[in-house]
Design a protein around this nucleic acid. Sequence first.
DNA 1: CGCGACGTTGATTTGCCTCAACGATTGTGG
DNA 2: CCACAATCGTTGAGGCAAATCAACGTCGCG
Lengths: 199, 199
Amino acid sequence: MFENILANISKVVSLTGEEEELLTSQLICRQIPRKTVLLRAGEICQFEGYIQKGCVRVYCMDEGGNEVTIIFAVEDWWISDIASFQYQVPSALYMETLEDSEIYMLTPEKKEKLLQAVPLFERLFRMLVQRRLSTLQERLVDTITKSAADRYVEFVAKYPTIINRVPQYYIASYLGVSPEFVSKIRTRLAKQGKHLSEE
Amino acid sequence: MFENILANISKVVSLTGEEEELLTSQLICRQIPRKTVLLRAGEICQFEGYIQKGCVRVYCMDEGGNEVTIIFAVEDWWISDIASFQYQVPSALYMETLEDSEIYMLTPEKKEKLLQAVPLFERLFRMLVQRRLSTLQERLVDTITKSAADRYVEFVAKYPTIINRVPQYYIASYLGVSPEFVSKIRTRLAKQGKHLSEE
DNA sequence: CGCGACGTTGATTTGCCTCAACGATTGTGG
DNA sequence: CCACAATCGTTGAGGCAAATCAACGTCGCG
């Protein structure tokens, strides 16, 4: 049952059997139907979760009411609004499942219990945040320097599975462009691809 | 001598006197003249630093050779390329001082020593990364949703001291716009300000 | 069947870039 | 101490990427 999450963690830190059991004993396993809202802006995020199955979209609203997708989290990803979770302050984010999902969750108390009991868990979560920071930084640079078309191509290359799992207008809101423009990018790429394969 | 860094840390975790001494005993204090390169892309980042005095710019190059400024770090900020530092892999970043600076540095070994000795340090650094993640996420959203003018105004409001310390074309590379356009934004704002104060 | 959700396509507009020329300031060597 | 170059900021003309708006296809589903 917990092979996936334990394998995920073992890439970061080496837990003893006991420590693994302590971890899994704290996890709350939830089956969540698609289109379920897990978190709304203004609420306090009460979970840090590992996605065993399914897909969750994390997003926020700008002042104009436009959605900006922060991540699509699929199998083997962790999700949380760390700031809201850590300091128990209202979140600025929304989270919702895009598919029927199975998520293992920690509450603030249960996470704290782990951290207190085993310092290695501090390290684990530090590593997870570090990784997330690196990818986010890379994405910021891409957003600043690359054209929408380049970002689209890169997204497809990086997350080939996600493309087929989420509607195109969500991809647009991740890339930071209008849905119409994503459509235009795709037709342009399709034509180019055709040209190339005809030569 | 170490009041600032200890005060900075005490906002996150409570160290005993002994732990504080352990920390400060590991710090390497460096006086660094302005325009000194601390890290170049391709090198491995061998330090995590706390800025006691001065100003450091962290940036990277895109494919076209344009610089993108990741942060301006001034007094009371931490700097590092966490990914490169942690995994001892080549960095994609550059760092250079913009002013004569005084920086307290940890090497990977010395940081590791702290982490091993006192689990609370794991927590400290986890918190620091979390905070950085939150601000970076916010910046990504701003970059995606807001106009360059809005981002400029927000930057000024958020970092009023920095504006006067770094040249304008670095601000441009932080905001992700051309230096010329920052100039145009400023003249536009100045005119607006005048209008407002004339009414 | 008909409706709503999603994607496409085209016309127009706009935000920002690029290039080029021109001040203003600074520092540096004669 | 001046001349000069270098550095940095400003301004304008023209161009391009992407937004906006509107209309139209298409598909799944009540």
